[in-house]
């Protein structure tokens, strides 16, 4: 079973090694200017990856998460609830959504291939981001078959 350190097990990274290696310039540790967090830069089969450092690889402490803020969980207002209900009544298909709301800002499509090999499944994710001049991303993940 996969496990990840829980908040109760966190201790903040104070070793300063990520900063040191970032400043060195020739290591894989980079500072992402948009997210304000430390990333590892490498190439995988899909191309260049900026992979967020969640825990310091040198001391195991929780790495600073930059500008990331957890999503807001406030309840919808009465007006917003009404808006949601109206949309639910009017939209019964994706075509309805296009007709009513137009082109979406982002489209995520996830494809699952159940039997590419004996023990694995493939999840392919396609992202079309119309906010970034129609940027398209395509990534494939290899996962174990659930028993």
């Amino acid at each position: 079973m996969r496990k990840i350190k829980l908040p109760v097990e966190y201790y903040p990274c104070k070793c300063l090694k990520p900063q040191e290696y970032r400043d060195q310039g020739n290591t894989c540790i980079k500072f992402h200017p948009e997210t304000g967090a430390f990333d590892i830069l490498y190439n995988d089969i899909s191309g260049e990856i900026w992979s967020r450092i969640m825990f310091c690889p040198f001391c195991g402490g929780r790495s600073p998460q930059g500008k990331y803020k957890p999503p807001i969980t406030r309840p919808l207002s009465q007006k917003e609830k009404l808006q949601e209900t109206t949309l639910k009544q009017k939209i019964k298909s994706l075509e309805d959504a296009y007709g009513l709301l137009g082109e979406p800002d982002r489209i995520f499509t996830q494809y699952k291939f159940k039997n590419p090999s004996q023990n694995a499944v493939l999840l392919a994710c396609e992202v079309i981001d119309n906010t970034q001049e129609n940027e398209e991303h395509f990534t494939v993940f290899i996962h174990p078959k659930k028993t």
């Binding site: 996969r2 350190k5 097990e9 825990f55 310091c56 040198f58 001391c59 195991g60 790495s63």
Partner: peptide, 9 residues
């Protein structure tokens, strides 16, 4: 790297 940067172990 001593610790996994994703899960922390």
């Amino acid at each position: 790297f001593k610790f996994c940067p994703k899960c922390g172990y």
